[in-house]
């Protein structure tokens, strides 16, 4: 999921011009889980903006809980059919979702003006209803086969691939005494699994061309093609 956190409302307000009519759009998947743009937060944001003198032309969170704003065909259908009238009276969209959601609204409204209402902070695991943690950096070249499934690129502050720096103390990272050393986490896990041999071999430098943005994925039922500056890789999911 894409973790998001709302921008402070006063910062949002600063970017809305006097008289600008704003339509607020939330996301009923990731932003709902982050309490940054679900149904409650979207309604509340509309009210908070109105309280600050901003004209709200409407608000919605397209689809049921679990439906992502970034599903373009669905978002387009909802905005253009259910909110057609309000959109005619709209100057801009405040999007309470991730950056992908913001772009989805641009596409769904044929290039409408948008304001990001959230900062997109990371891709994470919803550990509980109140905690979302980052375990993957979306680098395009997964190496966690060699680390028992724990990503050193993400869990090590320096993204070291061949073992820890010398800075950890009492199992904690040198940058933050509250943060576990990613490499000690990997070591402890592999020790329990009896697979410390996995981290004894040299890991070559990352291919950052696979991390070059923007990247794209073309998918069909049995085939997927991932394109980056490293080229296009096509794989089949059947024999």
């Amino acid at each position: 999921m894409h973790a998001t956190i709302q921008k402070p409302v006063e910062e949002i307000v600063k970017h809305i011009k006097p008289g600008e009519k704003v339509f607020v759009v939330g996301c009923n998947n990731c932003a709902w889980k982050c309490h940054s743009g679900g149904e409650d937060e979207t309604k509340a944001m509309s009210e908070r903006l109105e309280k600050r003198g901003i004209e709200i032309s409407g608000y919605t969170v397209p689809g049921p809980q679990g439906m992502s704003l970034c599903k373009l065909d669905h978002t387009t259908k909802v905005l253009k059919t259910e909110y057609d009238e309000q959109l005619k009276n709209t100057d801009s969209f405040l999007v309470l979702g991730c950056g992908q959601g913001v772009h989805t609204v641009i596409d769904a409204t044929d290039g409408g003006m948008v304001h990001p209402g959230c900062d997109t902070i990371f891709g994470g695991e919803t550990v509980s209803e109140s905690e979302i943690n980052e375990y993957c950096s979306l680098c395009g070249e997964c190496i966690i086969e060699f680390t028992g499934g724990l990503c050193p690129l993400t869990l090590c502050a320096k993204s070291l691939l061949n073992g820890p720096c010398g800075g950890a103390e009492n199992g904690k990272c040198e940058v933050d005494a509250d943060r576990n050393c990613g490499w000690i986490m990997i070591y402890d896990r592999l020790m329990k699994l009896g697979r410390l041999d996995l981290i004894e071999s040299y890991q070559k430098p990352k291919n950052h061309a696979k991390w070059s943005r923007p990247r794209s994925l073309k998918v069909s039922h049995h085939k997927a093609s991932f394109s980056s500056m490293a080229g296009t890789v096509t794989v089949s999911n059947i024999d």
Binding site: K158, L160, L161, N162, G163, Q203
Partner: peptide, 13 residues
């Protein structure tokens, strides 16, 4: 921006 494009093992190699 902390770079850490390489780690020290890779740099030695």
């Amino acid at each position: 921006k902390p770079v850490f494009d390489l780690d020290s093992v890779q740099l030695v190699k």
